[in-house]
């Protein structure tokens, strides 16, 4: 069974005279364990697609099945529970709670599933340590570098053991070195933890880490091809 399955998704915005077709009939399948990069020019509907498959937004028309469940039939709170348990988000702008420590930011998803404080703290500390942020637990976002903030956000996405990570331009605000580090982390999560990853990027260097690249144009999928990851290519070439 596909993890993500969309059937003829439309998202139409009514602003001004002409309605904008942000999504114009998108049908896609993503299987568990895939690592997909979504590319396309600005305004082609990438973020709109991500928000809908992240249950943050609803399509104007069409169906979306997440793990076989039709999300259109769910109410607000059921969607909130799905976001909490099934999806980890990584955003371009990090989206951490301001004036709140890294630790508490990572604890947040567990907070909303009513996990006891002690267990929450233990798991959050583990996740932060795994991302190389030991010693930064009590820093607030404004006391962390961009790369560190994005790693806190990834720790938050991982901490509920969600099977799916959605990342909308996760490296958009980072320099090359930090971008590569984040992408290598994503690759490990996908390979070792079997987490399905869908990420949006403008850069081929970033998309190169994925195993499948989908191109969007004007709200439609214009190409969908497998990709051999950069590293693997190098290894193959060396062999």
């Amino acid at each position: 069974m596909a993890l993500i399955e969309t059937k003829d998704l439309y998202k139409i915005y009514d602003v001004g005279e002409a309605p904008v077709h942000a999504l114009d009939g998108v049908t896609a399948r993503i299987e568990p364990g895939e690592f997909v990069a979504i590319m396309g020019p600005s305004g082609s509907g990438k973020s709109t697609f991500m928000n809908i498959i992240g249950c943050l937004d609803q399509p104007t028309r069409g169906q979306y099945f997440l793990g076989g469940i039709e999300t259109g039939r769910l109410n607000r709170d059921e969607l909130a529970a799905i976001r909490n348990e099934k999806i980890g988000f990584v955003f371009q702008g990090f989206n951490l709670l301001p004036r709140t420590s890294a630790l508490e930011n990572v604890e947040l998803p567990m907070f909303y599933r009513s996990m006891p404080q002690a267990e929450r703290k233990k798991k959050a500390l583990e996740a932060l340590k795994r991302l190389g942020l030991a010693g930064r637990e009590h820093h607030h976002p404004n006391q962390l570098s961009g790369g560190q903030q994005q790693r806190v956000a990834i720790a938050r996405a991982l901490v509920n053991d969600a099977p799916l990570i959605l990342a909308d331009e996760p490296t958009g605000n980072l320099d090359t070195k930090n971008s590569i580090e984040i992408m290598e982390l994503m690759v490990r999560l996908n390979r070792d933890d079997h987490i399905t990853i869908v990420l949006v990027t403008h850069e081929y260097d970033i998309a190169a880490f994925s195993r499948r690249i989908i191109h969007f144009l004007d709200g439609r999928i214009v190409s969908d091809e497998p990709n051999i990851p950069e590293k693997q290519k190098r290894e193959d070439g060396a062999a």
Binding site: A80, A81, R83, N95, L108, P109, Y112
Partner: peptide, 11 residues
């Protein structure tokens, strides 16, 4: 509020 909702806060 948006961040809290994204990580699972209910109504």
């Amino acid at each position: 509020i948006g961040i809290r909702m994204a990580v699972g806060a209910k109504t």
